[in-house]
């Protein structure tokens, strides 16, 4: 079993978690061009390496951030969403 450490619930089986994708910069739908908007919707960095993602512990519905290596399948760090300041969003 692979274990993920939830910032709220501690170490839990990874089957209790859901991955919700890379932490993106949001774009403003009212000012974005059609091309920018479709890129935002569909395109993905699909990085082979370290990524920062949204994860959710589904039984408690606790959302947090995780850093993960997509080549080695290692979870490098998990942390609660900072109250203010940047989340390390990528484009």
């Amino acid at each position: 079993m692979k274990i993920m450490t939830c910032p709220l619930n501690g170490p839990r089986n990874i089957t209790e978690f859901q991955c919700h994708g890379e932490v993106h910069q949001h774009i403003d739908p009212t000012s974005a061009s059609d091309k920018e908007w479709s890129d935002y919707l569909w395109m993905s960095n699909n990085t082979a390496g370290v990524v920062r993602e949204w994860w959710c512990h589904t039984p408690s519905n606790f959302w947090f951030l995780a850093e993960r290596n997509t080549v080695t399948d290692e979870i490098l760090a998990t942390f609660a969403v900072p109250a203010d300041g940047p989340l390390g969003e990528v484009r």
Binding site: S44, N45, N46, T47, A48, T70
Partner: peptide
Amino acid sequence: GYSSVVAKMVGLKLPIRS
């Protein structure tokens, strides 16, 4: 499976997740 990695070499981003 490596489509995004190779496309990135020519500066392309794809709507693909591996």
